[in-house]
Design a binder for these strands. Structure first.
Lengths: 230, 230
DNA sequence: GTAATAGTGTCTTTCAGACAATATCGA
DNA sequence: TCGATATTGTCTGAAAGACACTATTAC
């Protein structure tokens, strides 16, 4: 029997998968790294957790520092990644968070980072991300796809006020399939708590003016919105 | 601008929520701690991650060392917990894993720990767990409840071969609600890939002999099994 | 036979998918 | 007027909930 040993020492980081819809595509917030390792490469926003800081608070702080986005964003823990060697600086575990941003809060500023931008989430353009961030991003997109099925979080990817058609576009882009406008309309308007009507209308899309809604207060969709699963 | 600082140092642990059904109740694997902090208190099995070790591997190793259970258990990452002060030894982040154990592999041995046992998961009996393990356990139970809806993992909580009635008992215990035997039978036997018949029968429960099944190869249930949500 | 559990069938309701028809705008 | 989009409605098929009924064992 040996005496008590001090436990192995790790650095802990948070990384954020922040998704939004732009140009009718699902896009992800990335920052250009200003320092080694991977200086000049694109990566998910994130950084070291302080020892007196909760994980979620660290995620919110890093998001604020690096991209000045998303006060009041819905943040959800996605998973943790600790494969040995994933960070050349030494043993590092990262806790990934997922956030969905409405299409309006797009202006992005860098402060800690050399730059920040949105980019598509398709496999090709994600390949070049630093660390294991391509894999984390893929997990985030998967999670977002699932969340849209059984939660009303699709509304988080819309502006504060939106039409049913805009919400449908979110689903179509995230799921990569077209949905029948009439059945979708029936589904979302008749699910209690999904949408709350503002009474206002917009005619921005041409055609008959559409009702404007904001996100309702439902926590979970019953029954879920179904999609063709592979 | 300051120079590069060494990042804050954390210990990283894994903790396991291992659930099974015993005595018609959902039970959880706990170990009695053999050393400080919380010596003599019950806790979830778990321990420090080595720096050259993947998180999932560490979870499997700790489970093996502390309880000699579960070679070939389904292991799934549950979430990470890093509230400052959660471990009196210093800054510690724990990555929790969820596992579902069939009712047969119950004998439990301690080696690192002073003892190991199953205990009910109800709020009352979980209160006394060390660290923030009561909260982790609650999250694990929540996750298990959800997984039963849209995956065939309920079969993982049964022996290798089981009857539809045994499977139904699993759902009833985990969800805390009774299900109609006839509708449940129709649902699980007609969902492709959920169950695979062995051809054998058992009469252990009295009455007409029941078909024995083993878990099928479906990854996801379409449509899901629904439960009354609150 | 009875008691007990397994399994089938049937009716009703709810809801998704397909799609016709109508409504209300701009040009 | 037309072209575009929004919204309502209708029909059909899949599947859940309720529950009668039959099947097969032990006693």
């Amino acid at each position: 029997m040996v005496g008590p040993m001090s436990p192995p020492s790790f650095a802990v980081t948070v990384d954020l998968v922040v998704l939004t819809i732009r140009e009718r595509a699902l896009q992800c917030l990335v920052v250009k790294r200003g320092s080694e390792p991977f200086a000049g490469r694109w990566a998910l926003p994130g950084g070291f957790v302080e020892t007196d800081e909760d994980l979620g608070d660290a995620a919110r702080r890093e998001l604020q520092e690096e991209t000045a986005i998303g006060t009041g964003l819905h943040l959800e823990q996605l998973g943790s990644y600790g494969t040995p060697g994933r960070d050349p600086r030494g043993p590092t575990v990262t806790v990934a968070y997922l956030a969905l941003a409405g299409s309006l809060d797009d202006p992005v500023a860098g402060s800690d980072a050399a730059g920040a931008s949105w980019r598509g989430v398709d496999a090709g353009s994600a390949e070049s991300l630093a660390f294991d961030h391509a894999s984390i991003l893929a997990d985030g997109v998967d999670r977002a796809r699932s969340k849209l099925e059984y939660t009303p979080l699709g509304a988080q990817l819309c502006p504060a006020e939106f039409t049913v058609a805009q919400l449908r576009a979110v689903y179509e882009v995230v799921w990569g399939q077209t949905l029948d406008p009439r059945n979708f309309h029936r589904k979302v308007t008749q699910t209690p708590g999904f949408l709350s009507p503002t009474g206002r209308r917009t005619t921005a899309d041409g055609g008959r003016p559409a009702q404007l809604y904001r996100a309702g207060d439902a926590g979970r969709l019953h029954p879920p919105i179904t999609r063709a699963h592979e």
